[in-house]
């Protein structure tokens, strides 16, 4: 029979773990809500940008723009977006698994761009070359983080040092669901607009205009992905911590049962001792 004191100690320890996991769950829920709000706020910008880009693409030749030009993918940069922290279920490991699959099938030369501390920690001691990493910024995520990643890849792409840029991240489906998706950032796949603004003046001219809008598009895509990934991370953490809290409650119930059984057994033993002793005396 387990020692009463030991069981009591375990109950206390599981209870304090449960307090932590339930606090983490609530923090994650609050952060997720904020991240979701930011996603919604970013939408009007995307909408207008798409519209103008589509119009411009219709009237210009895509081969004129360095960011639209397609080349054979000899050198690829793979941006992998993980979180800065763990304790969020399969959020980070799903990304790493997907990256591994990608590296296996990739023919050309691939360099990694880890975004988030977990992904970087995983790859920095491995043989895959790392182009540049961006870590520990999700707590105060700002648009400038997206632009610094964006200008780095745009720069290398226009200097023909990269032929393709892909990104792997967790898409925010709902609070309880994240899907790993792979997208191509560069070259940009542009949807030509259908609606025409006739006799529109382009200043300085359509090609220059498109050239200055395409980087905005890349930066915006990265921003959206960072926001989605952050919201997804918080959602995953919320789910994981909720499960942990439930498990802790289950463990506490079980331990309490054992504790009471042990206590009852001890009392029964004591009583039968006393009864046995008393009988021995009266005889």
């Amino acid at each position: 029979m387990a020692n009463l004191k030991q069981i009591r100690k375990r109950i206390t320890s599981v209870t304090s773990t449960q307090q932590i996991t339930s606090a983490m769950k609530m923090v994650a829920a609050a952060k997720m809500r904020r991240a979701q709000e930011n996603i919604v706020k970013a939408r009007p910008y995307a909408f207008r940008l798409q519209e103008v880009m589509g119009d411009l693409a219709r009237i210009t030749d895509p081969q004129l723009h360095p960011l639209l030009a397609r080349r054979d993918p000899h050198r690829t940069a793979l941006v992998m977006v993980t979180g800065d922290r763990g304790l969020c279920g399969g959020f980070n490991s799903n990304i790493i698994r997907q990256v591994e699959i990608h590296l296996k099938v990739e023919q050309g030369e691939t360099q990694l761009v880890p975004v988030g501390r977990i992904g970087h920690d995983w790859y920095r001691r491995r043989t895959v070359p790392i182009l540049k990493q961006y870590t520990s910024f999700f707590n105060d995520l700002a648009f400038t983080h997206a632009t610094s990643i964006g200008s780095m890849i745009i720069d290398l792409y226009t200097r023909l040092e990269l032929d393709r840029v892909e990104i792997i991240y967790n898409e925010f489906k709902s609070a309880v669901r994240q899907d790993v998706v792979v997208e191509t950032l560069l070259p940009i796949d542009i949807e030509q607009g259908t609606q025409s603004h006739n006799e529109c003046i382009y200043e300085p001219d359509a090609v220059t205009l498109l050239n200055s809008i395409l980087p905005l598009h890349i930066n915006y895509q990265l921003w959206r992905i960072l926001l989605e990934s952050y919201a997804a991370e918080q959602g995953a953490r919320m789910t994981a911590m909720e499960a942990a809290t439930d498990n802790a409650a289950e463990m506490i119930a079980e331990l309490t049962l054992h504790y009471n059984q042990a206590r009852q057994a001890a009392i029964t033993t004591e009583i039968s001792d006393i009864v046995g002793g008393a009988e021995a005396i009266s005889n």
Binding site: V52, H197, E199, I201, Y202, E203, P204, L209, S212
Partner: peptide, 19 residues
Amino acid sequence: PGADGYFGVLANHAPLTAV
């Protein structure tokens, strides 16, 4: 602040897209 200097837009301006 346009690419070639500041310019103003009033009501009923012609359709324009500018850097």
